[in-house]
Design a protein around this nucleic acid. Structure first.
Lengths: 113, 113
DNA sequence: GCCAACCAGTTTGTAGTACAAACCTTGAAG
DNA sequence: CTTCAAGGTTTGTACTACAAACTGGTTGGC
């Protein structure tokens, strides 16, 4: 995409996937969130939420703490510093794409035919 | 996601996929575009551009006209009315997701724990 | 004429992955 | 002690995006 200088793909699939984009975006507006809250907010099934969270943790975008509250399991999730940066960057990239107007197209010599 | 009333998924994968999101967004800022132009604008490989275009056509989001210009094949792509509506709607949905703030979270009774 | 190199795409094979469904574990209720 | 529910995790499969191989017309060299 014009406006980006390098060859790295513009939209990171890890973050772009709808479920994970929802999780990360919700997380970026709260200090932390537990599993049940995230499930309600994102409308994901337990299974999918669980596996998305695992992927996000493996990628270092969230930290997951499992504890017991009222003798019930409670999974608490927070964004890492990297996670905050990456989700913010992703929204920036999306905005760039969206602003890809006819004007900017004309300005790019490599697009001329 | 709160803010949406029904059970249909918020982000349509057909449109959300990075390559197709790029194609549709570029198309929505020009009257029409040919294959080579789209390839430069989206930085997709020929093969991937070709298969994404086929999918978009099958879904009724674009129309594809193949002709010869200067004795060379030329594939011209335009958004259909449905395509225009769907890509606009998708960007709306993304904006909704992004604006999913702590404030709006608090306002939603079904999220209270 | 003939062969090589292009250009403009299409088709195909495979590796990765998102989802639903089945499963697990603990706690409480009857 | 059996059942139900809450809060998750694991598993099997069906889909799909990508790269690589292929196709067909065109032009240029010799």
């Amino acid at each position: 995409m014009p406006g980006n200088n390098d060859d790295e793909p513009i939209l990171d699939r890890l973050i772009h996937e709808p479920g994970r984009l929802a999780i990360l975006t919700v997380l970026s507006s709260v200090k932390d969130a537990d599993f049940v809250f995230l499930q309600r907010a994102t409308r994901l099934t337990k299974g999918n939420l669980s596996s998305h969270l695992t992927k996000l943790e493996e990628a270092g975008l969230v930290t997951i703490e499992k504890r017991f509250v009222n003798r019930k399991p409670n999974t608490n999730v927070t964004l890492t510093a990297i996670g905050k940066e990456r989700i913010a960057h992703h929204w920036d990239q999306l905005e760039r794409l969206r602003n890809f107007s006819e004007k900017s197209l004309r300005e790019l010599p490599e697009l001329q035919e």
